[in-house]
Design a protein around this nucleic acid. Structure first.
Lengths: 204, 204
DNA sequence: CCAGATATGTAGTGTTCACTACAAATGTGG
DNA sequence: CCACATTTGTAGTGAACACTACATATCTGG
C-alpha cells in the first residue's frame, strides 16, 4: 500500500499545546486560530488529524487524564483513607498552582456551561471527573473493609466529598488563589476524612 | 424636562430571564438572540438599558447576589460556626438542585474560563464569590472570639474551605448530581468544621 | 396640540467563527 | 521514474456573532 506524505508535526507535542489553550480559555473561549498557532500547524492539518474542534478537545482530555491517571494511582496507594485524601488534595494544591501549567484543572476550566451545539462538552468533562471519583470510592470501600474507615462511614459519599473539594480548589486556583491558600483548604478538608477514620493519628 | 416614551418591559423581570440564560449556558455560551428572546425584547432595548452583553451580565449578577446576600445573612445568623457551615452547605444542596432554577450556581456557571475579550468575566464572578467568603470569614472570626472555634483554628482558612466545598457542589450539581448526593457531601464537609469546634454536640 | 425626548421594531453592519476546496508538495510501492 | 496516497499552505466558505442606524411610535412639559 502507498503511504502518502508523512505528517510533519508530532501529534502528542501538538496536543500538549492545544491542551494548554483549552485549559486557559475553555472549550468555547479557545479559537481554532489560537489552537493552530499554539500547535504550530494550519487548520487543515488539525482537521485531518483530529476531526473537528470537539475531537481535538477529546484527544487533549485523553492525554490529560492519562497523565492524571498515573498520578491518581500513586494517590490511592497511600496507606489509609486519610492519607489518600491528604496526598490527593495537597497534590492538587501544588499541581493547580504549578506555574508550568495554567492555573486550575482542565476538567473544570474546559467548560462547566456551554452554548447551544456544545452541550456535551460539560458532559464529557463530568464523565472524566467521575472516573477519578470512582477510583477514590473504590479505594475508600477497601479502606472500610480494612477497618481503616468507621463502619458507619459511606465510601461513596466520602469520595464525592473529596472530589467536590478538589473541584472547588480548581476554581479557586483559576481565580488566583495561591498555593498556601489551597494547602490550607486541603488541610481543613482532610479533617473531615479523619473524622471518619478509626486510627486517629495522635494529633499534637 | 421631557420624559420620552416609557419603557414597555420591566427591567427586573427581564433580568430574571437573562440570569437564567447566563446560568444555563454561561456568559460566552449565551447569545444575544437567546437573551432577547427570553427577555421578550429586541436588541436595541437591551443595549439601551444595559449597555452591552457584559453590562447585562453584571446587572444579572447584581440581582443574583442581592437575593443571595439576603440568604447569606440568615446563614451567618446560625448559633455556631458548625451550624453556619451546615446551614450554608445544606442550603446550597437544596438551592442548587431546585428545579425552579438551572442546576448549579450562577457564580460558577457564568464562566470559569473565557476567551480573548472576556477575560474579566471570570474575574467578576470570582469577586462576587469572594464577597461570600469574606462574610463567612468575618463570622468565623467572631466564632473564634466567642470561643466557639478552637484557639488554634484559622477563620480565613475555614471560610475558604467552606467556599471551596460550595463551589465544588455547584459544579457537581450542574453536571447532574442529585440533592441527596449533595447533602451527603455537605454532611461530610461539616465534620471538618466540627473538628475545629470546641462544643462538640454529643454525637450519637 | 405641539416640540422635545426616549423607546421600539426592522433590518441590517462588519467581524469573527469553525471549517474546507484546491493545488502543490512529499512520501511509498512497483 | 511513475502512479498513487496523504499532508501541507493558501485562501477562502457560509453562518453566527455582538452590536447599531434609522424610521416610527409613545410619552411629558408647556
Amino acid at each position: 500500500m502507498r503511504m502518502g506524505r508523512p505528517r510533519e508535526f508530532d501529534a502528542e507535542t501538538a496536543l500538549d499545546q492545544a491542551m494548554e489553550v483549552f485549559w486557559r480559555h475553555g472549550y468555547e473561549g479557545a479559537t481554532i486560530a489560537q489552537l493552530t498557532e499554539a500547535m504550530g500547524i494550519n487548520p487543515p492539518s488539525l482537521y485531518a488529524c483530529f476531526g473537528n474542534k470537539e475531537g481535538l478537545l477529546k484527544a487533549a482530555l485523553d492525554r490529560y487524564t492519562k497523565l492524571r491517571g498515573a498520578w491518581m494511582d500513586e494517590v490511592v496507594a497511600a496507606r489509609t483513607a486519610r492519607d489518600v485524601a491528604e496526598r490527593m488534595l495537597m497534590g492538587i494544591a501544588d499541581k493547580q498552582t504549578d506555574p508550568a501549567n495554567p492555573p486550575g484543572c482542565l476538567l473544570v476550566q474546559g467548560g462547566i456551561a456551554c452554548g447551544t451545539g456544545s452541550e456535551n462538552v460539560p458532559f464529557e468533562l463530568a464523565a472524566r471527573r467521575a472516573q477519578n471519583e470512582d477510583q477514590l470510592r473504590d479505594r475508600f470501600v477497601r479502606a472500610k473493609a480494612e477497618g481503616d474507615l468507621k463502619s458507619t462511614s459511606d465510601p461513596a459519599a466520602l469520595a464525592r466529598y473529596v472530589s467536590a473539594v478538589a473541584v472547588g480548589m480548581g476554581v479557586m486556583a483559576s481565580s488566583g488563589a495561591d498555593r498556601e491558600a489551597l494547602r490550607q483548604v486541603a488541610d481543613v478538608a482532610v479533617q473531615a476524612v479523619e473524622a471518619q477514620s478509626t486510627e486517629v493519628p495522635a494529633a499534637s
